[in-house]
Computed example of a mutant assay.
Amino acid sequence: MIAAIRVRGRTGIRKDIEETLKMLKLTRINHAVLIEDTPSYQGMLQKAKDYITWGEVDADSVTSLISKRGKLPGNVKLTEEYVKENTDFSSIEDLSKAIVESGAKLEDSGIKPLFRLHPPRKGYKDLKKTFAESGTLGYRGEKIGDLIKKMI
């Protein structure tokens, strides 16, 4: 499972990149989505690499993301009771493990696939350089969990 976060704004974007970001549901700064690791999604991430950062996410990061920032339709906060009553899982931890390991989908559980996050504590390093150049943009690998924790 991959977490993708939009870190740059909307002005001055080429039309094809903007369409790609819409398909990823990343329409605003500090929005995050969880997507599957498929070749088509990898191509979309590469196309939008100058506006987003992404990496493989672990179950702990998904658990904190869902429990603190998960929303239901109608902008209602996600609770443990909702997960127990309306899904096949007994807790948010079980749901997050299923998402990471077996590819369960948030939409099937009735949870919105988009997470609205705060700007990261202590800020971004550099919004014009890639993560490999000690910046913010592009592929992060396992270190996306650190950024998610700074933004929750």
Rank of each mutant, 00 (worst) to 15 (best):
D37N: 09
Y124L: 07
W54L: 01
D50H: 08
R69G: 08
Y51G: 01
I111R: 05
P73I: 15
A59R: 14
E19I: 02
S90A: 14
A32R: 02
A132D: 00
V83D: 07
T63G: 07
L95M: 13
V62P: 00
F89H: 15
L72C: 07
K122C: 04
K84M: 09
G43T: 03
R14C: 08
K47E: 03
S109P: 11
G123K: 03
E142Y: 05
L72N: 09
K84Q: 14
L114W: 02
E107S: 15
S91V: 15
K84G: 02
K49N: 10
I92T: 15
T136M: 00
H118C: 07
K77V: 14
G103H: 13
M23W: 06
Y124N: 12
A104N: 14
L65T: 02
E36N: 09
Y51M: 03
L72Q: 10
I13C: 11
M23S: 11
V33S: 04
I29V: 13
I13A: 15
A59I: 12
T20S: 09
S40D: 12
R10W: 09
Q46S: 04
S96G: 12
G141P: 06
G141F: 12
L45T: 03
R14F: 11
N75Y: 08
E107V: 13
A48L: 00
H31C: 04
A59G: 12
L72M: 07
G123D: 04
S64Y: 10
I144V: 14
G141I: 02
V76N: 09
I111C: 10
D60C: 13
T130A: 02
I111V: 13
K125V: 07
P120R: 01
G74T: 03
P120E: 12
G55N: 07
D37I: 00
K97Q: 15
A104Y: 14
R14L: 05
G138F: 12
T27P: 01
L21F: 03
I13S: 12
H118R: 15
Y51N: 03
R140K: 06
T53Y: 02
Y124T: 06
I52F: 00
T38Y: 10
L95C: 12
K143P: 02
D58L: 10
D58M: 13
G43F: 03
I35A: 02
Y41M: 07
L72A: 10
P73Q: 14
H118P: 01
L117K: 00
K97H: 11
